[in-house]
């Protein structure tokens, strides 16, 4: 019998359905892969997974009850990492988890556990970073717009933070890399996940440039010249995050005395 490759639609629900199918049929797929990344080959049998809410709910419940709520969080965060072959590690992590129960997260020298925990950690770290590094710009109509291009799909993790913090203003966070955005309305106290092309640019408010200018001059004035240390700065704040910052790293040296 040919070994099977599970192909799912790329959604979290789809992944859970694939996992459910594997455990239900008691088989170990050679690979669980997103349809978008799948390449046909002759060696394995391709099994298309139809995303199912009922099946996804069921395995979610099983993970929570038979392993732990924490483990479920790890699986979701690891999924968001979009790292290569993370689905296979998630499968092995759960495979072991259903055998060992909640202490699976203490198996710190097992490869699948390490991979899943590390992926989850990367995602959480990046999402924590963006809680600080995201910059909003005021648009015409008093809405706040922020663009990001994160390594991992963290939009959904940023949402609760910004919803709690800016509950009385309208805002939009735009993931330009994945061409989607989350919109929040203060009046309705509701949010919505939408598709939004990378080229989208709003019209900014008239006084926006002025506030940005103030922030830039604050940023430049704050650095202590005798401690100038750009290496340390970019260690904490890697260059890949600079594009959407309003401030300009390095600008303290250009400041007029």
């Amino acid at each position: 019998m040919k070994k099977e490759v599970f192909v799912y639609d790329g959604s979290y629900q789809g992944l859970l359905t694939a996992l459910y199918t594997a455990f239900k049929r008691k088989i170990i797929p050679v690979k669980i892969i997103k349809a978008a990344d799948f390449r046909e080959d002759l060696f394995y049998k391709k099994t298309i997974i139809e995303s199912s809410e009922a099946k996804a709910d069921l395995i979610t419940k099983k993970i929570r009850e038979n392993i732990s709520a924490n483990s479920l969080k790890n699986v979701f965060a690891a999924y968001l990492s979009e790292l290569e072959a993370i689905e296979d590690h998630i499968f092995r992590y759960l495979f072991l988890g259903f055998k060992e129960g909640e202490k699976i997260d203490e198996f710190l020298s097992t490869t699948a556990v390490i991979k899943v925990q590390e992926a989850a950690k990367k995602v959480r770290r990046e999402s924590h970073r963006f809680k600080g590094l995201l910059r909003f710009q005021k648009t015409q109509g008093n809405k706040y717009y922020g663009a990001i291009e994160p390594d991992h799909d963290i939009l959904i993790l940023l949402l609760p933070h910004f919803k709690a913090r800016f509950s009385i203003q309208d805002w939009l966070i735009h993931d330009k890399k994945r061409e989607k955005a989350v919109i929040y309305s203060a009046a309705a106290k509701e949010w919505l996940l939408i598709e939004l092309e990378a080229e989208f640019e709003p019209q900014f408010a008239a006084d926006e440039a002025e506030v940005q200018d103030l922030w830039q001059s604050f940023f430049a004035a704050l650095s202590i010249e005798n401690r100038y240390n750009p290496k340390l700065q970019s260690q904490f704040m890697p260059k890949k995050y600079w594009e959407y910052l309003i401030e300009e790293p390095g600008s303290s040296r250009k400041r007029k005395k």
């Binding site: 600080g132 590094l133 913090r165 009385i168 401690r227 290496k231 260690q235």
Partner: peptide
């Protein structure tokens, strides 16, 4: 729900100045 902002137990860094602080 009806105020601007909140505080987080863990604290958040928003940027790093040219001296790495």
């Amino acid at each position: 729900k009806n105020s601007l902002g909140n505080t987080k137990a863990s604290g958040i860094c928003h940027s790093w100045s040219d001296d790495g602080r």
